[in-house]
């Protein structure tokens, strides 16, 4: 543990440089630049809202605003999807670097999760814009939201460690994960409510950690209430547990990476 903190201190500057590199490269030569970070989730939300309110009518709680419902799920799922994807390819993508200089390898998945994390914070702006525009309003409980976000970050980083390790040994993982993430998107209640899922399947859906992070956020944003204690516990277990497993898997295998260049 002491080692980890020392190492993060030592490589803080490199981490900062890698994250800022990603930012600079991402918006290079695009006219709207960083505005895309705000616009993109809004546009996706609009598409989904159009499809699911006009074409397929989703049975939804009439007390809550569907746009806010969509947006709160979407922002969280998009973070996970993008960050885990980038983290997965971060080690393989930086092989040329790993082969030439000594850099702790965990820095690559970590920098990707942080980079998308900053993007995530930007997408909170359109989320809150929707919250205000639809008249949903905010309350003091919103101060509890960072807990869900930290758990989400830990979970994503853990998954990123595991995926980046597997993809070194098995490049097929890039294709497999594309399918997995599609499946996960439909198994996460982003555009529908869990109550429309057949009851015998609901338990399965509850094993999805993302469900709990979204549940936690929606409890606060939509229903103005402090999440029940078991929701807190699930979030923490899924977040911290996955991170620890991921760190273990990564640490155990990182010295072998160099043979699979």
């Amino acid at each position: 543990m002491k080692n980890i903190i020392y190492s993060i201190k030592k490589y803080k500057f490199l981490l900062f440089q890698l994250v800022s590199r990603d930012f600079k490269v991402k918006y290079k030569r695009s006219v709207l630049g960083i505005i895309w970070s705000l616009l993109y989730p809004l546009l996706t939300m609009s598409v989904l809202a159009l499809v699911f309110t006009q074409m397929f009518r989703m049975s939804n709680n009439p007390d809550v605003n569907y746009l806010v419902y969509l947006m709160s799920g979407l922002v969280i799922f998009n973070y996970f999807s993008e960050a885990s994807n980038l983290a997965m390819s971060s080690v393989v993508g930086n092989f040329s670097l790993i082969n030439k200089v000594y850099i702790p390898k965990y820095i690559f998945p970590l920098s990707k999760c942080l980079f998308v994390g900053i993007n995530f914070l930007l997408t909170l702006i359109p989320l809150y814009a929707i919250i205000f525009l639809t008249g949903t309003g905010i309350n003091i409980n919103h101060l509890l939201l960072p807990f869900a976000f930290i758990c989400l970050f830990m979970f994503t980083l853990g998954v990123g460690f595991i995926l980046s390790t597997i993809s070194v040994f098995l490049r097929d993982m890039f294709y497999i994960y594309g399918v997995v993430i599609t499946l996960l998107m439909y198994m996460t209640p982003i555009m529908y409510d869990l109550s429309i899922v057949p009851e015998n399947l609901q338990l399965l859906f509850k094993f999805n950690p993302l469900y709990w992070f979204i549940y936690f956020s929606r409890d606060i944003i939509l229903y103005n209430q402090i999440p029940a204690i078991n929701v807190w516990i699930y979030c923490l277990i899924f977040g911290l547990g996955t991170l620890l497993i991921g760190m273990f898997v990564f640490k155990k295998n990182q010295d072998k990476f160099i043979y699979y260049v």
Binding site: F16, R21, L97, V101, Y102
Partner: peptide, 25 residues
Amino acid sequence: IELGAGFDPQLTARENIYLDGAVMG
């Protein structure tokens, strides 16, 4: 051993001095 390992071709020379420097520790 290998110079310029940390360069990112899309960044400017100024940005790359910092990036490559950070990679070199």
